[in-house]
Design a protein around this nucleic acid. Structure first.
Lengths: 86, 86
DNA sequence: CATCATTTGTTCGTATGTATC
DNA sequence: CGATACATACGAACAAATGAT
């Protein structure tokens, strides 16, 4: 997560900028498989965005297969195969 | 009970990690039918968790059919072949 | 008999996460 | 952004029953 600033003038919407920052962290190995990504509250504070925006970023990451969410627990970096969490 | 370390950032909540450790002990025969599993106080010491977490683990084991609890006495490994695993 | 240690039962409060509206 | 709900975890305190001394 190299940058902490959101560019509201950029073509890429804020939630995608955050998602890309997370993806960058995953690709650099800073965020490892089955480890939690920053919580919604952390994203809200770190990037100064609304909860909706943080949630959009999480939903996007999940839709792209980068992460998986465990209800009442957190969102974690996917490890390629299907997680076996019950 | 091979492992006595709790991973608080794991997708599986602490009480489930403890429960799984107990189940492992049962399946390996270290904890035998009608013999007591570790007391709440022991779990607290061994895994360094709060009593609430230890109790959740016990409640889970009981709900899954692995153990039965005798009030003011302890929790014991259930006999019979039913593991409660569906 | 009384005392003590052990163990589970119960209830209060605080905190962090996600889920939903 | 707010408010609410739910699951989880930690901490503390007290109650009640059991078993050993």
């Amino acid at each position: 997560m190299s940058d902490d600033a959101i560019d509201y003038e950029a073509p890429l919407p804020p939630y995608r900028q955050i998602a890309d920052a997370i993806i960058g962290g995953i690709n650099r190995g800073e965020l490892r498989p089955n480890r939690p990504i920053p919580s919604e509250a952390t994203m809200i504070q770190r990037w100064g965005v609304a909860r909706d925006t943080a949630r959009r970023a999480v939903r996007y990451l999940r839709a792209q297969g980068y992460t998986y969410t465990v209800p009442q627990r957190g969102t974690y970096v996917a490890d390629g195969s299907d997680n076996g969490v019950s």
